[in-house]
Amino acid sequence: MSLATDLWWAVARSEEVTSKKPLSVDIGDQPVVLWRDNQGIARALEDRCPHRRAPLSLGCVRDNGLIQCGYHGWSYDGETGRLKEIPNMKDQQKFPPIYKANAFGVSEQAGFVRVCLNPKAEAPLSADPKYTYVGTVNVSCSHQEYLNALYDDPALVIAIRGVRFSPYLMAELHEEGGMLVMERNCQWNPLHWPSHFVAEFPLTLLTRTHPSTGETQLTLRDDQFNDLLHAVLSPVPSARGVTAVRWRAEMGVRHPGVRGAILRGINPLSVLATIDGSKLRTTKPTVSLHGEDLRATMLDAPHSAQDQTQAA
């Protein structure tokens, strides 16, 4: 797939990027290698050594912060991508500027490492909330289909312990501050009445999605407008139509009673690693159909849509 080059993709959680071992991720069909240099700064280069095209992610991170290719040991600087050293060539360690790997823009905030294919792009600002629960899954489903599933039936892609998503919406997908926003009614599990016969819903799930990257803020609220759970879900298009999803979640206010207690146990949010294909293909595009149109209109009007500021 072709992707706009000035988008910032949350391709890793901060703790996944280390100086121990390079990490291989993708942005669409572009392989990217990530690591942390000796100053603790996250770096991103194309995961392809310009010498003989070996993946740099098979190499190692040196004490001086350079990434070293595992094939012939060429070492690259993470900030510029420039070649810094060829082993056994102590006499010549100045290389012409074309001796470089493609470097990408990196920005690290709120527990995510974001990469932009355009190294000159300006990094987004975001709040820095605390997140207790984290995870990474790779789902074999395209980026758009993944988001469509989240819109049409969140149960296809996530689960919240003790909570059941109803098919009934409180607010259809609409634009708000450059984001795609919707709100869905939820119930506590187990049910007393099927959702069709319920007069009042005790919970809602609010989602706010960036129209290009699909990065989504999830908020679970009770009927007293307490935020019970907050999460960020970051789906990134990856190789072979896979969507890599990184997420972080944090508990909010405690809901009284047993239900609140169940929700507050160990990590209440699961982001599913597989999608049930038979359920997926028969799920009606109730939200996503309209969502795709809306998204297209928003992306045509760049002033509102390109703001990636996280209003957490």
Binding site: P50, H51, P55, Y99
Partner: peptide
């Protein structure tokens, strides 16, 4: 083959990007 296996598909199609090389 730890290196040649991932290398090989990257040499299946023409690219305008030239491999870099050293005297070795």
């Amino acid at each position: 083959s730890y290196m040649t296996s991932p290398q090989s598909p990257r040499y299946m199609r023409h690219t305008d990007r030239k491999d870099l090389h050293s005297k070795f």
